[in-house]
Structure formats: C-alpha cells, structure tokens
Amino acid sequence: MEKIRKASHAGSWYTDNPLELEEQLDGWLRAAGLVKSSDVRGVIAPHAGYSYSGRAAAYAFGNIDPTNISRIFLLGPSHHYYTPKCALSRATVYKTPIGDLPIDEEVNDELKATGHFEYMDLRVDEAEHSMEMHLPYLAKVFQGYPVKIVPILVGALSAESEALYGRFLAKYVDDSKNFFSVSSDFCHWGSRFNYIHYDKSHGAIYKSIEVLDKMGMDIIETGDPDAFKLYLSETDNTICGRHPISVFLHMLKNSSTKIKIRFLRYEQSSQCKSMRDSSVSYASAVGKVDG
C-alpha cells in the first residue's frame, strides 16, 4: 500500500506552485552554468529556504548527469528528533510539487536487516526539512528518468557510529548506478545559535566566519573523516550536517571507488558586522570519480 510523505515545507520554505518552482530551479541551474558529468556521484548541498540557499544549491545539483543513475541515497541531519542511530523512512513515496520520488523499499529492507537502522514515523519524517529541500532539485534533474530514493535520517552519532554506518554504506558507492545527496548548511553564527566565534585578525566578522568555514571545506576535500572530526572539536563550528558529512567521508574511505570531493560555491545569508548580527553559511560540493 502506498504511504505518502507530503511535501510539508512547500508553500513556506519554497513555492508550492509547480510552474514557479520549475522556473526558479531552471534559472538557478542556468546561472550556475555547469556542465553535467557522469563522473559526479554525489553532492553536498544546503537545505535552507530557497530564498536563502536555492542559488548556492544549484552549484551542486547542476553537475548531475542523470543518464545512468537509478538510485539516490539521501543523507540528512535530524533537527527535531533525537536518535543515536540512522533512521529509514516508512513512506513509499516522497511528494514534490514537480514530481514524486518513489522509495527503494528493497534497499530499505536490506539496511533494516543489518540491525543498525531504525524507522522514523511519518510525523518525524514530515517535520524534518533537511532532505526535503533537496527533493525539488532532484525531481527536476531526474525528470523523465526512473530513479528511486533511499532517505536516511542521520541522528546524533558518535564517532564510532559514523565509522560503522560509513562501512555499511560503502558497498553502495561501488555501484555506479547509485548517487549520494548529502544535506548540510555550514556555520550558524550569532547569539541566537549560541555561537559567536570571532577571530579579529581576519577583519570583519563575516570574513572570520568565511575563513572558519573554508578551513572545514578544505578538510572535507581531503576526504579524511578523522581530520574533519578534529576540526569540529577544535572549532565547534555549527555545521548542522556534520554527521551526514562524516558518514559520507567514511563511506568514501571504505569503498574501492575513489571519489574526490570539491567545493564549488560558498555563500552567507548575510554579512555579519556586529555581535548583534547573525548568519548561516551555505556551501555546495560535488563528489567526482577520481582517475
């Protein structure tokens, strides 16, 4: 029986008007001016409202060549629901205003059988925006292609659990029909986020934030999950998708397909100049087969 996850953030975080949404996505993808490549096997992209991060996200999704991909693994952080594990969806289809994406129930069952995944109920699923914000872009890029998705809500994992899930999922990296969409915003800066790290030697606050984020982005590009963990413990940077990114790095480390991550775009929601200001950073990257 079909179990639908509604596009619960359509009409608020992004438009629920299909024509308007298509036009917006088209515009951003065109503006990014990227060439599709079959070597692109994954992306790291933001998940804020489209008025904030839609343009930046195009730099990730605009690289995707949908031709040979039949399955998309979605890894998103949990904002409202606490779990020390990874959770799978009970839905059979994810709705978007511009087309629906069916869940790969076979892979869901396979993952559940490992004993390390739980199910999230539909209420938790629909409350979470981190994966939903990737869906319209994926529906757009994969329009006309028979693709299934495997949404994985990544909980508050320990370093050991991140490595464990990375090992479990690594085998899927070695199948070139699989694609990975990793959801994360970068620094959440300001007193409302309880994070006001400021290194005055870099100039204005927004410059200090950029240096901090780019240091993290450089480390992610090395593909070293331990170095990323160390960076997070030293800086406390409020990267909300740190767990999905860590799992992804462990997946790449444990797979025999060599995939190199490269960041293509960095933006901030606003430029912080005083301690009263706040901003969220957005970064878009691709994971490309290396050599």
Score class of each variant (00 low, 15 high):
Tyr206Ala: 04
Leu138Met: 13
Phe168Ile: 15
Leu138Tyr: 11
Ser191Val: 14
Ala163Asn: 14
Pro225Trp: 01
Phe193Gln: 09
Gln143Ala: 15
Asp236Asn: 15
Leu153Val: 10
Ile219Glu: 01
Glu210Tyr: 03
His188Arg: 00
Glu234Ala: 05
Val173Asn: 06
Val211Cys: 00
His197Gln: 14
Lys207Glu: 15
Arg192Gln: 13
Asn178Glu: 12
Val154Gly: 10
His202Met: 05
Ala204Val: 03
Pro225Cys: 03
Ser191His: 12
Thr222Asn: 07
Val154Met: 09
Pro136Ser: 07
Lys148Cys: 10
Phe228Cys: 04
Ala204Arg: 12
Tyr195Gly: 05
His134Gln: 15
Cys187Met: 12
Glu234Leu: 11
Glu162Met: 14
Phe228Trp: 10
Ile205Cys: 06
Val173Gln: 09
Ile239Thr: 11
Ile205Leu: 03
Asp199Arg: 05
Ala227Met: 11
Pro146Cys: 10
Glu160Ile: 09
His197Val: 14
Tyr195Ala: 01
Ser191Cys: 04
Lys140Pro: 00
Asp224Arg: 02
Val154His: 09
Glu160Trp: 07
Val211Met: 02
Glu210Arg: 13
Met217Pro: 04
His134Met: 06
Val141Cys: 07
Asp226Met: 05
Ile239Phe: 04
Asp226Gln: 12
Lys140Glu: 01
Trp189His: 05
Glu234Asp: 13
Asp174Gly: 06
Met217His: 05
Phe186Val: 11
Glu160Arg: 14
Ile196Asp: 11
His202Asp: 06
Ile152Asp: 08
Val150Leu: 10
Ala227Val: 00
Leu164Asn: 13
Gly144Arg: 08
Val182Tyr: 00
Ala159Pro: 14
Glu210Phe: 04
Gly203His: 07
Leu135Gly: 04
Gly203Thr: 06
Lys177Trp: 03
Ala170Glu: 11
Val173Leu: 11
Arg167Glu: 15
Leu157Ile: 12
Phe186Asn: 03
Leu153His: 13
Pro146Glu: 11
Leu232Arg: 03
Ala163Thr: 13
Val150Phe: 04
His188Glu: 04
Phe228Asp: 04
Pro136His: 02
Glu210Cys: 01
Val150Asp: 10
Gly216Ile: 02
Thr222Pro: 09
Asp185Lys: 05
Ala170Pro: 10
Ile196Asn: 14
Asp224Lys: 06
Tyr206Val: 05
Ser208Met: 00
Ser158Phe: 02
Ile196Cys: 13
Glu221Val: 06
Phe186Glu: 02
Ser233Met: 09
Gly223Cys: 00
Tyr172Ala: 05
Asp213Val: 00
Leu153Gly: 04
Ser176Asn: 13
Tyr165Pro: 11
Trp189Asp: 06
Ser176Lys: 14
Leu164Asp: 13
Val150Gly: 12
